[in-house]
């Protein structure tokens, strides 16, 4: 599956009186690594929730590879190749790392209804899971329960689940949140290795990482897009400096 494009148009979400996402326009080209930055409470996670289908859209539309998915159920969006990771690691704590990935690989293979053949004996499925295991650098932890992983490793598995589930478009919600410098560096290298093979929307706080990695950057403030462009454009953009860097005068 080649990397899809994503087109977001007029997307809005309101919680009571608060407009969390306000008429957002965003285009991701096939294979692009697009970063989404913005201060706390800017609506970044809400946008990811809307894109993945976890929250209902109030207005606007989402197109994945030209197909309208605005009202498509969450699990069906995943079936169309839309994968996500969570800001707070959401793994299956009681299962081993390998079983976590095998479960995701089961989703990719669309195998859900078998009642008789043991999955543990499925060599193809586990070969796929081991492939992801190697890719995310957790080979040594295959049999460890996910709940016993260190924070950084759990973040790696978090991304691994999205990869193993067969996603071609990744919504990564702060994959480096709470990581130590060395761990963050490893995660950065991992994300860099995905470039071009996937279309990626990267929500991130770490400005250095964003400027190094992203093809283009969008800045979200109070639910609105205030700028989109390359790293240099964003660095120089006066509104961005004022809003994001908290400077009154550039």
């Amino acid at each position: 599956m080649s990397a899809p494009s994503l087109a977001i148009s007029g997307l809005s979400k309101r919680f009571g009186g608060v407009v969390a996402v306000d008429a957002v326009e965003l285009q991701l080209q096939s294979g692009e690594l697009h970063a989404l930055i913005g201060p706390n409470g800017a609506g970044k996670t809400t946008l990811v929730q809307l894109l993945s289908g976890a929250e209902r859209v109030d207005a606007g539309s989402i197109h994945l590879d030209g197909r309208d998915i605005t009202h498509v159920a969450m699990h069906q969006r995943a079936g169309l190749g839309l994968g996500r990771s969570y800001q707070i690691s959401s793994v299956f704590a009681a299962f081993s790392v390998l079983d976590n990935l095998a479960l995701a690989a089961q989703a990719r293979a669309r195998r859900r209804w078998g009642c008789w053949a043991p999955v543990a004996a499925d060599a193809v499925l586990f070969a796929a899971a081991r492939g992801t295991l190697d890719a995310i650098g957790l080979s040594a932890r295959a049999e460890t329960p996910a709940g016993a992983l260190a924070h950084g490793e759990r973040r790696q598995l978090e991304l691994g689940l999205a990869l193993a589930s067969g996603a071609s478009m990744l919504l990564l919600d702060e994959p480096m949140a709470g990581m130590a410098a060395a761990e963050a560096e490893r995660m950065l290298a991992l994300i860099a290795s995905l470039r071009g093979k996937f279309t990626i929307l990267l929500v991130e706080h770490d400005m250095d990482a964003v400027f190094r990695l992203a093809d283009r950057i969008t800045v979200l403030v109070y639910g609105r897009v205030i700028a989109t462009g390359g790293a240099e454009d964003i660095r120089r953009h006066p509104d961005v400096r004022r809003a994001y860097l908290g400077e009154d005068q550039p």
Binding site: A78, Y86, F92, A93, L103
Partner: peptide, 14 residues
């Protein structure tokens, strides 16, 4: 998987 983390299972495509 659903028992332990239903939302994640949905996000994976189940």
């Amino acid at each position: 998987g659903v028992r332990d983390n239903e939302t994640r299972m949905e996000a994976l495509g189940f």
